[in-house]
Design a protein around this nucleic acid. Structure first.
Length: 575
RNA sequence: GACCCCUUCGUCUAGCCUGGUCCAGGACAUCAGGUUUUCAUCCUGAAAACACGGGUUCGAAUCCCGUAGGGGUCGCCA
């Protein structure tokens, strides 16, 4: 690859592989983006190359620092480290105030496009000088009308450069001086363009399918470089050798290749990956969350939701907007989990980062044998573009969950406890106190470890452990089935059980198990006939860790208090 | 609509390049049993696919052509 000179920068990275992940900071990191990042990362790591992270914030209106931070944090959580790019604050918690865009690693920065204007300007000058770029005064409205007209006539629309190209220098200068807005377009070469894709093979795009596209927006739209232009200039300036991106970019590639050639720089190799869809074949988008929330709200007959202005809510329900804040508020109110779309969603739902990555790697890639469960080290060792498929894939949450179940089963006690604690700290402040009680929390974690498929499940299922005794809510169905059925056989056991337990010491798992078993044996009933009523009495429902562990985590005081509470409330809960 | 990409069990895929060992293998899901004091696990088994049509060949999931279906793109968004 010959050296590239843009600005004062000369990039010469001999035979080294350089890949990049270049998200635009307009929201959270999407799983599709995560897979793109993963493949670029794995490809670079496998070949001993460099992985660059570049923030494409050319769309000033939609980009934000919070999004940038969120994406960096998601990348960090996933364990995808980059060799060059912005630095993440070292704090465990991403704190916006600690984030300094000036801090970065690598020598090809800045890694924010918003700070690379001089490079685009210089490249533009070169194109303007060589006649490969020209000014066009057609407004967006005019072009829109032309597109509509072509469509109405059933014809394919394509930009016609005749007017702009035939305009005299004087005329251009006059209109420019008069302050008329214009865009700058790239003059496509007069020939077909062949993209030699590492996954798809050769793809030929005919000259008449290609049009002179905009590389610099008009002053009305901020006057900055378009994605195509900034992307190419940066890939050149950063010495990117391989561009791995989603197939939706395939039709952009001829433009990019032509741009590289016009700048007299060898283009990188391209590899277009298949897309990821929902299990029903629809596009995985933020709208899914809005859709799910709307459906749930409708079913629950929700007419308003705390924290959201009524007009906004009404519009949301009328499908006038897909505001995620409204969706989140509905989800919180109805206690439902919205479909996970972003990396952060999966994190909040309690998936392990390497499990998500493992699953994601299988969407479009396969190691070629029957091995499916593996970690990043395996991926780095075996990843290869030749084994990336061409067909789109559907995201199957059930399979991800199965992977996560196994991954959690493989964690040792200490690791699970640490990860659970971290998860609860981030998403469930109601567990703060329990987390602080070392021994009790260790037992809590150890009780849930073998029965959790995600880090979120202990938080949901164990909630009865962290509420006031008096706040315990009894599930009517459970009370009827376990305590009241058969003439209150279960309920009748609670009194003597209370007394037996009140007299029991010490309050620890083994002796409690024995005590409960003895209690059952004395009455000639099965262990389950005692355990279930006791479980309902102390937890409010039929599901909890083994009963002896449940009692130890709860403590003697709460156990006895709750048994009394059950004896008190259950009789009134019949039909 | 035009251009481009794709097509193996419900889903993700192995096999395809280098035709026979494939009446197609694995995983998840499903169904049926079993273990377990609840739950979550776990164990055993079953059902389940080469989109269709033509061609090449002794022989095609594998090569070629066509058809159908799916997807992507067609922005001063990235």
């Amino acid at each position: 690859m010959k050296p590239c000179t843009i600005g004062r920068m000369t990039v010469e990275r001999h035979r080294e592989i350089v890949t990049r992940f270049a998200p635009s900071p307009t929201g959270h990191l999407h799983v599709g983006g995560a897979r793109t990042a993963l493949f670029n990362w794995a490809f670079a790591r496998k070949r001993g190359g460099t992985f660059v992270l570049r923030i494409e914030d050319t769309d000033v209106a939609r980009s934000s620092v919070q999004s940038t931070l969120g994406i960096l944090e998601d990348m960090r959580w996933l364990g995808l480290d980059w060799d060059e790019g912005p630095s993440l604050p070292s704090a465990r918690d991403a704190d916006e105030s600690l984030f300094d865009p000036e801090t970065q690693k690598g020598e090809h920065g800045p890694y924010f496009q918003s700070e690379r204007g001089h490079l685009y300007r210089e490249a533009l000058d070169r194109l303007l000088e060589s006649g490969r770029a020209y000014k066009c005064f057609k407004t967006a409205e005019e072009l829109d009308a032309l597109r509509k007209k072509a469509r109405a006539e059933g014809k394919a629309y394509q930009y016609d450069p005749t007017d702009a190209l035939s305009m005299s220098r004087q005329e251009v200068a006059r209109r420019e001086a008069a302050g008329e807005p214009f865009v700058i377009r790239f003059r496509m070469p007069d020939r077909d363009i062949v993209v030699d894709d590492l996954i798809l093979g050769q793809v030929r795009i005919k000259r008449n399918e290609l049009e002179d596209f905009v590389i610099v927006k008009s002053s009305r739209a901020g006057g900055g470089p378009t994605f195509h232009f900034a992307n190419v200039v940066d890939d050149a300036a950063m010495g990117i050798t391989h561009v791995l991106r989603a197939q939706e970019h395939l039709m952009n590639t001829p433009k990019h290749v032509a741009l590289f050639e016009a700048l007299d720089i060898a283009p990188p190799r391209y590899a277009h990956m298949p897309l990821i869809f929902n299990s029903d074949g629809s596009k995985m988008s933020k709208r899914d969350k809005a859709k799910a929330a709307r459906a749930a709200a409708r079913q629950a007959g929700l007419k308003e939701v705390p924290g959201i202005d009524q007009p906004l809510f009404d519009e949301f329900m009328a499908k006038k907007n897909d505001d995620l804040l409204v969706a989140a508020a509905i989800a919180a109110k109805l206690e439902l989990t919205l479909p996970e779309i972003d990396v952060f969603d999966f994190r909040r739902s309690g998936y392990l980062p390497w499990t998500l990555l493992n699953y994601l790697s299988l969407l479009g890639w396969s190691p070629g044998n029957d091995i499916e469960r593996f970690g990043l080290d395996f991926l780095v060792e075996h990843f290869d573009l030749s084994r990336v498929g061409k067909a789109n894939a559907r995201f199957d949450r059930a399979k991800l969950l199965a992977f996560n179940t196994d991954a959690i089963a493989e964690l040792d006690a200490a690791t699970f406890q640490r990860m659970l604690s971290e998860h609860l700290r981030a998403f469930h402040p109601e567990y703060d106190q329990l987390r602080g009680e070392v021994e009790r929390f260790a037992l809590f974690a150890e009780s849930y470890r073998p029965r959790s498929r995600t880090l979120e499940e202990p938080a949901i299922n164990g909630r009865f452990f962290v509420i006031e005794d008096s706040a315990l809510v009894y599930d009517a169905k459970a009370v009827r089935k376990v305590l009241l059925k058969y003439d209150g056989r279960g309920l009748a056991l609670l009194g003597p059980l209370h007394d037996a337990l009140a007299a029991h010491e010490p309050w620890e798992a083994d002796s409690l198990e024995k005590a409960i078993a003895d209690f059952a044996a004395d009455r000639g009933v099965n262990l389950g006939d005692v355990a279930q009523p006791l479980r309902v009495a102390v937890s409010g429902g039929t599901v909890s860790p083994p009963i002896n562990h449940t009692l130890v985590i709860l403590g003697k005081g709460s156990t006895l208090a709750r048994i009394k509470l059950a004896m008190d409330r259950a009789p009134a809960m019949g039909e």
